[in-house]
Structure formats: structure tokens, C-alpha cells
Amino acid sequence: MLMCRDLAEIASDYIDGELSARQNLSVKMHLMMCQDCRTFIGNLRASTRLMQAHSSGHPDEELLRRIDERISEALKTRRTRDNDEE
């Protein structure tokens, strides 16, 4: 029988639909009987949604400026090369 700890170990796989049909059924059966695990799964799901809503990292402005500069130089070089070829 699936215990609360077992369920906690495979909770992400359950949330992402990565479990086999049999495992999925055992999780569902367990959740029907266990309020604590229902809260746990709900909270883990909310944490996952929180991550999705959270910004995915911000490179600093200095890095973006350096990239802009390098692209600008490379575009110039490419244009010169294309003009020479014509």
C-alpha cells in the first residue's frame, strides 16, 4: 500500500502526469483517503505555479549592453563583407 512518504517521493511525477496508470491510480486512491496528502499535493502544485509565474531570471543591464555592442560590431562586419562580395 502506498504510504504518505511514498506519495511525497513521487509527487512531482504525479503533478506532471509522468506516472504509469497503475501508480496514478494508487496515488488517487491514497488522496481520496488522506487529507494531509491532498494539502501537500495542492501546495506543491501551487509552488510549481508560483515558479511558472515568477520571472525567469534577469541578466544585468551591463551584460545586455555588452551583447548589443558585440552584435552591432558583428552586423557592421557582415555588411562590409556582403558589400565587398557584391
Binding site: C37, T39, F40
Partner: peptide, 12 residues
Amino acid sequence: TGRWDVPPKLKF
């Protein structure tokens, strides 16, 4: 036994 000793208290 694999049951919660300290279950999640609050619902997010």
C-alpha cells in the same frame, strides 16, 4: 510507518 508526523498545516 511512512505517515505524516508533521503534515502541511496551511493551504497555499
